[in-house]
Design a protein around this nucleic acid. Structure first.
Length: 897
DNA sequence: GCGGATCAC
DNA sequence: TATGGTGATCCGC
């Protein structure tokens, strides 16, 4: 696919150009540059998008201004000192230059468009683009002559080129083709790095070595003539020149290729003996250039993508001679050499459009050639230098890499270390010598753009939809994370993100939504009484525990179970010990190491650091849940004892209820719960809306608990099952951080001992609700453990005379002995944990939650869902029967067609 | 850890 | 009428 960077997003600092104009020479049948610019400008000017672009541009200009001011303050003394330091660093870098590999970068230009053209001959010779009216992914060369580019909205493209055919993308197909290509690439470098469907880096050093000793036949490939073609003996070189003509389909699909041991594209011996077929063969040489030709040839055969379909492979070969000096830090990175991975991807990438399209470029294997190549290279060509960086550097008079090198001292004073190190690497022609393999994923997200949505209810529904999607995606990869981030873009294109991190991982739609909902609600409340006018919403999850974390968690579970009810200090010891044992000492990272390699190593180590940090923080914060709980109780008391007229936020209709008494508020909640529709309750509550948008969070805490309690009470009466789990989903008014703690606290069941030591503050409300269930913490250390691992034994305190129902297995226990009952629960729970360890699937706490839902308070919960259309209160079962907002063109069907 | 920004594709 | 979705990283709090 075409990169936005080089195409639509041009590197002229003129806004007009930034908006998508290109400086390509326009072909005869296309449009000339000025005309293209004019059309784009007409389509853009006055739009909200454009206004936002101007705003962003102003911010960048401000940054530049600040930088210039900072520059003015720099003394020559400082500059001189910086120069010395930077040069020392540069010298070390120079010494560490690792030049002993051959890297190939392959880029399948206009990939999506090429595939579409291949599969639909009618599209041949027509301007096409893949994408939608709002956004194009790529365009073919024909369309480019009209200025139609990747990352351009389709409707603008249509103005540029009315006959443009916009083909909706078919990613499954592209993936399939990509897979075919990758199978070929693997023959040359099993550890090649694919950066996208249409781009890959190969380290062919090893292959080249082996290849030197191969006989001709092992490098011979046969061209099978097809109907449309072609003179016998047509050389591959010639085929490559026919960039826009129809290439022959030279091989059958059924050709036995990719035999692990054999030479994939060699025909069988029978055919080999046929002189005519032999005549149609080509032998590729042993050089890197020949290898790349061979790769292209094979790809063309296999995918049947013809050159005329603009299936151009652009590649660069960089060969470096082996540096004599092998610095110490290379031994740190030794494992990567064992992986068969090595050199500089940066340069490979830079050059990929040197001879576009269908060109090839080789940098000779010596430093001079590299520096010569770098010399006049605009820094914008470097991957990682975007339009903002380009503009900032331009303000310092830096456009080329030479200038970048000349200003190295200044840059070290104006930019953060990471940045100027990066710049220095670029200006020396240094890049990563490591082809990063697929690392662990760090986040997963869903986001969607739509026409304006400003109704809160719809926004919540949408949010829930996104959470469900995300949960599904998470499940596919078996991931769970601790940080949930929502992303909001309003109709003016202003983007906001809001995040919340909890102490135990979440993964289900319900869990994610419980957090996302609060984040969203905070934003809605903040703008009240104005609605959020959204054009995009997204949900992201991150902070996935790495392998170390998981092991650690398992260890602590096992450790805890083994330790039983032993003292907490013992548990602490376990944690401390494992903490010590678990982490290898961070390796000293020499400054001489490649910037890119260093970054990679840092990333690796940061996993460990992150975990250690977490541990430390947990130690520091170990008493937090206790404090939170205590604080909530205090709040309860404060609220109850203070003025009866307060500001409440109804957890059902989300409306603020101002200056009404608690009793009235509860009546309101009742009305909301029982009322026929949300509009009714909204009507009621709208009367009490006040101008202030400030929400009293403490009171929210209080009243959300009141609601929880209410529901729990009903559950209790109905099924005599005691649980707080409903609160997790039901409470709708905690601010996100308290909420997180609340969830933690509730998820982590508490022992009888913990219970007994809690300062007794009930969650009572004045409607006669009994203090039927109270939780407490025994001490802070247990909390530490509970934050570390939520699956821990817990006990119940029950009102005497009640039927005991195990919250894990959900079966009634024929015992009135609390000790026996608790033992049963422990056994059940342990079973759950064993399952968890084995299948990483079953979460006893969730089981508990689920069972309480399906039996206990669920009737009330479901009623709430149905009546109020609040997605947050939906159960798993009711979620599928989601109620869609009425009277709106923005139905969910529209969003998720 | 959070939020805004930048970047790539 | 109308300017995407996903993932990563960095910096300054």
């Amino acid at each position: 696919m075409d990169s936005t960077k080089e195409k639509y997003d041009n590197h002229k600092d003129d806004l007009l150009l930034r908006m998508g104009l290109n400086d390509n020479k326009a072909g005869m049948e296309g449009l000339d540059k000025e005309k293209i610019n004019k059309i784009i400008m007409e389509a853009t000017k006055g739009s909200r998008f454009y206004v936002n672009e101007l705003k962003k541009e102003k911010q960048v200009n401000q940054r530049i201004e600040n930088m210039i001011q900072q520059k003015a303050k720099i003394t020559s003394q400082q500059l001189w000192k910086a120069q010395v330091q930077v040069d020392r660093f540069a010298m070390e870098l120079e010494q560490s230059r690792n030049l002993n590999n051959t890297i190939v970068h392959i880029d399948m230009d206009a990939f999506y468009a090429a595939v579409e053209m291949r599969d639909n001959p009618e599209l041949q010779d027509k301007p096409i683009a893949v994408g939608s009216v709002s956004m194009l992914s790529t365009s073919n060369y024909h369309a480019r002559r009209f200025g139609v580019r990747a990352a351009m909205p389709g409707f603008i493209a249509k103005r540029l080129c009315p006959q443009l055919i916009i083909v909706p993308p078919n990613f499954d197909k592209y993936r399939a083709v990509s897979k075919e290509v990758k199978e070929i690439l693997a023959d040359y470098d099993p550890n090649f790095m694919a950066t996208s469907l249409d781009e890959a880096y190969l380290n062919i050093t090893k292959h080249l070595q082996e290849r030197q000793n191969w006989p001709d036949d092992k490098r011979r490939y046969f061209i099978r003539n097809s109907v449309e073609n072609d003179k016998p003996g047509n050389k591959v070189n010639k085929l490559n020149e026919h960039e826009r003509s129809i290439s022959p389909l030279l091989f059958e699909d059924s050709l036995p290729d990719l035999q692990p041991s054999g030479n994939p594209f060699q025909v069988n011996s029978e055919e080999q003996n046929n002189p005519q077929i032999l005549e149609n063969s080509v032998v590729f040489g042993t050089s890197a250039e020949e290898v790349v030709k061979e790769i292209r040839f094979r790809i063309e055969q296999k995918t049947k993508l013809t050159a005329s379909a603009a299936m151009n492979l652009e590649y660069l070969i960089i060969s470096f001679s082996l540096g004599k000096f092998r610095p110490v830090q290379d031994s740190i990175a030794a494992p990567r050499d064992m992986d068969g991975i090595a050199p500089n991807t940066m340069l490979a990438k830079i050059c990929s459009d040197k001879h576009k399209p269908n060109g090839q470029y080789q940098i000779l294997p010596n430093r001079e050639a590299v520096m010569d190549f770098i010399k006049d290279l605009p820094i914008r060509k470097v991957s990682g230098v975007g339009k903002v960086t380009e503009k900032m550097l331009k303000a310092l008079g830096i456009i080329t890499c030479t200038e970048l090198y000349q200003q190295r001292a200044l840059l070290s004073l104006l930019f953060p270390e990471t940045s100027w190190h990066y710049f220095l690497h670029i200006s020396l022609g240094l890049g990563s010598t490591y082809l990063a393999r697929d690392g662990e994923r760090k986040s997963m997200s869903v986001e969607r753009t739509f026409s304006e949505i400003n109704k809160a209810e719809e926004q919540y529904s949408l949010c829930q939809e996104l959470c469900s999607e995300l949960a599904q995606d998470l499940q596919k990869e078996g991931l769970k994370g601790r940080t949930v981030t929502i992303k909001l873009k309003n109709v003016n294109f202003e983007v906001k993100t809001r995040a919340s991190t909890v102490s135990s991982v979440v993964s289900t739609a319900e869990e994610i939504f419980a957090i996302a909902k609060e984040l969203l609600r905070t934003e809605i409340d903040a703008d009240f009484p104005h609605p959020l006018r959204l054009r995009l919403m997204g949900v992201r999850i991150s902070s996935f525990p790495n392998e170390e974390d998981k092991k650690q968690q398992q260890k602590s579970i096992i450790g805890f179970l083994q330790a039983g009810n032993q003292s907490l200090s013992a548990t602490n010891c376990i944690l401390k010990k494992t903490d010590k044992d678990q982490f290898v000492k961070p390796l000293e990272i020499s400054q001489k190491e490649s910037f890119f390699d260093k970054k990679r190593l840092e990333r690796k180590l940061s996993h460990q650091d992150a975990f250690k940090e977490t541990m430390n923080k947990q130690s520091l914060q170990k008493s937090q849940p206790f404090q939170v709980l205590k604080k909530m109780n205090e709040n309860l008391e404060t609220s109850e004892n203070s003025d009866n007229c307060q500001i409440f936020t109804c957890p059902v209709c989300f409306r603020e209820q101002r200056l009404i008494s608690l009793e009235d508020f509860n009546k309101h909640v009742d009305a909301c719960l029982d009322g026929p529709s949300i509009s009714e309750s909204a009507k009621t509550s709208s009367c009490s809306h006040a101008s202030s948008t400030e929400v009293n969070k403490e009171e929210n805490v209080h009243y959300s608990f009141s609601l929880c309690e209410k529901q729990n009470y009903e559950a209790h009466l109905k099924n005599r099952e005691i649980t707080l789990a409903n609160c997790v989903d039901l409470e709708g008014a905690l601010d996100s951080s308290s909420k997180a703690e609340c969830v933690d606290t509730l998820n982590n069941r508490l022992s009888k001992e913990e219970y007994s030591s809690l300062p007794r503050k009930s969650f009572n409300i004045e409607n006669g609700l009994q203090n039927f269930c109270t939780v407490s913490l025994e001490n802070e250390d247990l909390t530490l453990l509970s934050r570390q691992e939520s699956h821990q034994p817990y006990s119940y305190e029950v009102i005497t005379g009640q039927t005991l129902i195990c919250p894990v297995c959900n079966l009634e226990q024929k015992t009135s002995d609390l000790t026996l009952f608790n033992e049963h629960v422990d056994i059940c729970l342990n079973k759950g944990i064993i399952q968890e360890l084995r299948k990483d699937k079953v979460n006893p706490v969730n089981q508990c939650k689920e069972s309480s839902r399906s039996t206990g308070g669920s009737s009330r919960v479901q009623k709430t869902v149905t009546v109020t259309k609040r997605p947050g209160l939906m159960t798993k079962h009711s979620a599928s029967k989601k109620i869609k907002p009425n009277n709106s063109k923005h139905t969910l069907d529209t969003f998720f067609k």
